[in-house]
């Protein structure tokens, strides 16, 4: 502590910065911004061609998420778009808010764990809905093995459960580390010369990070969903059929 205080490192300041439960004010702000955007976007929905900017952005967002689900999960992945839309808008709005305001819900690990819990639980819920409870549990035990190899299946089961928990940690930590790390770097740069916001130079790359983190969370959710909702052996043939047109298309 002495050393940190002697050097007057902003790292310590950032660590001591206490927002506490006021963070939910910022959560509400994210909520409000998204709702305002949705209201603006809904104005133009009646037109045959979407001309206003918010509506076009919303359309592009929808098409982007739909394309992602179709790419990663397959043609039946469109039903997961609502959840992904909620995740994406919340994270992206939070991240962008973090560029301008002093605190944001996505830069707080406690809140990110909450979102990760919902994501993982949602993936499990969809897996159970797609395969049934027994089929979903079977998913965890890897390929079918006979005889004494059942022990290996048990081992795989434990490993898979641990990896599910790691999903929780990795999802939340990734977002927290990227956003909060960016804030720390920015405040550190700002404090090199007092009164000159050098950290502002980082804004473009931080904006890019905001976009990437929202994208990463959604595409990881898609990947988890595609693993959880695949039907094991039956699905392999369907998958082949599904991939064949794409292959022929690529060759053509």
């Amino acid at each position: 502590m002495d050393l940190l205080q002697q050097l007057n490192l902003p790292l310590a300041e950032a660590a001591e910065k206490e927002i506490g439960w006021n963070i939910f004010f910022y959560s509400g702000l994210v909520f409000a911004i998204v709702l305002v955007f949705a209201t603006l976007a809904k104005k133009d929905l009646k037109n045959r061609v979407f001309t206003s900017l918010p509506t076009r952005l919303a359309e592009h967002l929808y098409l982007f998420l739909e394309g992602m689900t179709v790419n990663v999960i397959g043609p039946n992945g469109k039903k997961y778009v609502p959840f992904l839309l909620a995740i994406w808008t919340f994270i992206f709005t939070g991240n962008i808010m973090g560029l301008l305001l002093q605190a944001t819900p996505t830069a707080d690990w406690s809140l990110n764990i909450g979102m990760a819990v919902i994501t993982v639980v949602y993936v499990q819920y969809e897996g159970i809905k797609a395969n049934g409870l027994l089929g979903h549990i079977k998913h965890f035990s890897g390929p079918k093995l006979g005889g004494f190899m059942i022990l290996v299946s048990g081992l795989i089961f434990v490993v898979e459960i641990v990896s599910e928990c790691m999903k929780l940690v990795s999802l939340s930590l990734r977002l927290y580390g990227n956003i909060e790390g960016g804030h720390i770097v920015r405040s550190s740069l700002d404090s090199i010369i007092a009164g000159v916001p050098i950290g502002g130079l980082l804004l473009p790359i931080k904006f890019f990070t905001c976009l990437i983190q929202a994208f990463v969370w959604t595409i990881l959710t898609c990947t988890y969903l595609s693993i959880a909702t695949s039907h094991g052996h039956d699905d392999e043939h369907e998958g082949d059929h599904g991939h064949q047109p794409a292959l022929t298309e690529a060759h053509a």
């Binding site: 790419n71 990663v72 990795s170 930590l173 990734r174 927290y176 580390g177 990227n178 790390g181 990437i212 994208f215 990463v216 595409i219 990881l220 990947t223």
Partner: peptide, 20 residues
């Protein structure tokens, strides 16, 4: 591009663990 981003993300996780 998608696969590369996923790989980058998983690599980044190592750094983030150190960060934490």
């Amino acid at each position: 591009n998608n696969s590369m981003l996923l790989a980058l993300v998983f690599l980044e996780l190592v750094f983030l663990l150190t960060f934490v």
